[in-house]
Design a protein around this nucleic acid. Structure first.
Lengths: 212, 212
DNA sequence: CTTCAATTTGACCGCGCGGTCAAAAAAATC
DNA sequence: GATTTTTTTGACCGCGCGGTCAAATTGAAG
């Protein structure tokens, strides 16, 4: 059995190859749809050899999810109370969109998991995600109270940012089918989403900013 | 073998029970994750009996998809060139949100299919969806050209409507985990999305409407 | 070169899968 | 009530699945 943490070069290399292959397969087929043979073949290993590095299919998936959650939540963590509200939010949108562009498989892995009722991430959803979102929603609410953003429900604002940005990774096939060839979905999305959120978050009328 | 179209009462009843059960199972587990035994049990039939009504797992899935596409695209078809642009768009958002609320399983079935590369709906995507979206995008573009809507990319506006509304069905587990108990996600979403899209589509400045 | 641990493999297992089939049971028809 | 057609069922099949294991191969250390 390999040590609990990769030690040798070969362990490092093969573990990485397995996780990379598993990400590809899991994200495209879902947990049940993925097979160890597919993952093993993609990783360039035999199935028993793969199971020499990970004790089970579940374990591979769990490892992927663990790694994913950190990366996925980081942009939200960076939302800074000291920054300009509009810049902070738009930067967040942009970072999330870049995440969808650069890590679409991770996005689909997560989507697959949630779609199927999140049987393996219920814990983190309550223990990690909810507190973080509540915290940042409170921050946004305070910005709104100060009249620095238009009044909108902070939780649903965050949902809408997740939805619109992840859409380009999760529904990539549909987006490209509808747009047809000759488009750069992510570049267009960046421009569109900046406008969408800026327009809807700019304070107006009674709630106008004090310095304008 | 049953006739091509349900004839007797019992055929009608069992076919419906199968499709209802299959929707439940497919939408929660995806195509590969679903099993005929699960569907049969939910439908209250034995597996061979189920296969007396449908020739294969594929056929059941195909039937569901066929029924789904019509319902799913209807709201977009209703976008009316003669109506008020803002009302038309906001009504569309509302209808899509109601669809997510009332038919979340259909939404997840579709999401599952797209996530996995749309192996069984590539045709309709190009032949039905794209032309319809292009048509309605042109309509929106004409409204923008008339200064009756703020200038945004119509295709991506439609994407953002799909993304934000379907999010509440597809990511239901996550939404409820983050909001916690005591919330009505769809009621809150309706209010939020009306504000979001109204704010971002209201023409301002140079593009202001002529009659205001 | 030897030794010993780390790695890889082929053969195998039990199970659940999608699907078949012949025969029994129920309905419908006369 | 006999006959015919529709519906239901239990037994079964081949296959691919996740996973095991003993043995072979390779690599590192002396």
């Amino acid at each position: 059995m390999p040590r609990s943490r990769p030690k040798t070069r070969i362990q490092q290399k093969n573990s990485e190859a397995i996780l990379e292959a598993a990400l590809e397969v899991f994200s495209q087929a879902g947990f049940r749809g993925a097979t160890l043979d597919q993952i093993a073949e993609r990783a360039g290993l035999s199935k028993p050899n793969l199971l020499y590095y990970f004790p089970s299919k579940e374990a591979i998936h769990a490892e992927l999810i663990r790694g994913l959650l950190k990366v996925w939540l980081d942009p939200l963590r960076e939302l800074d109370a000291a920054g300009d509200p509009m810049d902070e939010i738009l930067d967040y949108v942009r970072r999330k969109l870049e995440l969808s562009r650069d890590f679409p498989r991770e996005s689909r892995l997560f989507a697959n998991e949630i779609l199927q009722g999140a049987p393996r991430v219920q814990g983190p959803l309550h223990d990690e995600l909810k507190p973080l979102v509540d915290d940042k929603a409170a921050l946004i609410a305070s910005w709104i109270a100060q009249g620095r953003l238009a009044p909108v429900d902070p939780h649903h604002l965050i949902f809408s940012i997740w939805a619109t940005t992840q859409h380009y990774a999760d529904f990539d096939v549909q987006v490209r089918a509808v747009l047809g060839p000759g488009h750069d979905p992510y570049a267009e999305a960046d421009s569109f989403l900046m406008t969408l959120f800026r327009n809807s978050l700019t304070p107006r009328g009674a709630n106008a900013p004090r310095d304008a």
